[in-house]
Amino acid sequence: MFWLLVAGAPLLLLFGCVAVVGSVAKTDPAPERTTLAQPSAQNPVKARPSETDNPSQPTSETTTPAVQQPLETIEDGTWVVGEDIAAGNYKVTAPVSSSCYWEITKSGTNGDDIVENDLPGGGLPRVTLSEGQDFQSLRCGTWSKR
């Protein structure tokens, strides 16, 4: 019985290969020719870095995210000076109503450390904002950097 398994294995292997090769040869059509995509605006070609490229140097596949510049106009809300809005002097663009309220607080204190605040009651209020501060404006309209 042992002899039959050993002797039979090459025969099965031989018949298995013939069957596989025969079926592949009968069912596979001739390979189709393919063409490479040409570079275009929709399909740009990216250069691959070579092994000699310095890994600290950016490749053509590296992109730098756009840096958002701080705004120079302020609407109602709470803003971080130096991140959301630029530091500097600001003035409202139209006279305010008596319900206008603004405050400047130290950043990171959740409004607990008030540097300056006001209920101007009318007119054209002005503020000077520095980095490290938060600015909150309620019902004051638009502030513009001067």
Rank of each mutant, 00 (worst) to 15 (best):
S56R: 15
Y101A: 09
V80Q: 12
S144H: 07
P58D: 07
N117D: 13
V24Y: 11
R139Y: 14
S40M: 13
D112N: 14
I104D: 05
V96A: 06
V20P: 01
S99N: 15
A41M: 08
A9H: 05
E131P: 00
T63L: 06
D28W: 11
P10L: 04
G122M: 14
W79T: 00
V67W: 10
D84G: 04
T142H: 01
L129C: 07
A25F: 09
V115M: 13
P31M: 02
I85Q: 05
V80A: 14
V115G: 13
K46Q: 12
A66W: 01
V6S: 06
G16A: 13
T35S: 13
S23W: 08
V80I: 13
Q133H: 08
C17F: 08
K145D: 00
G82H: 02
S137V: 04
G111H: 02
G22F: 01
V92T: 15
K46E: 12
Q57M: 04
W79L: 01
K46T: 12
N110A: 12
S60D: 13
I85A: 04
Y90M: 00
Q69R: 11
D84M: 02
P125D: 05
N43M: 09
D113L: 07
C140P: 05
T63F: 07
T142R: 02
K91E: 12
A94N: 11
S23R: 06
W79N: 02
L36I: 14
L11I: 15
R33P: 03
P125G: 01
V81D: 04
W143L: 14
K91W: 02
T109A: 10
D113E: 14
T63Y: 05
V20Y: 07
L4N: 06
W143D: 12
C140R: 01
L11F: 15
Q38T: 15
Y90Q: 00
A87F: 09
Q42C: 03
A86V: 01
P58E: 01
A9C: 06
T59Y: 01
A7W: 13
S60C: 06
P10I: 05
S137A: 15
G16T: 12
S144P: 04
V67G: 08
V18M: 05
E131L: 04
V80G: 03
R48G: 05
W3Y: 09
L36K: 10
N89W: 00
G132L: 08
A19L: 12
E72W: 01
G122D: 13
T64D: 04
T64M: 11
Q133F: 06
P31G: 02
V45R: 10
F135M: 11
E61C: 10
W79C: 03
G123E: 11
T78A: 06
S107E: 14
S137Q: 02
V67T: 15
S137I: 02
W79E: 02
T34D: 11
D28Y: 09
G111F: 01
R139F: 14
P29F: 05
P31T: 04
G16M: 09
A87V: 09
G111W: 00
T35Q: 14
T27V: 12
L124S: 08
L124G: 03
T62N: 15
T62P: 03
P58R: 05
E32C: 10
P55S: 02
D84A: 00
S99T: 15
G132Q: 04
P29W: 02
G77K: 10
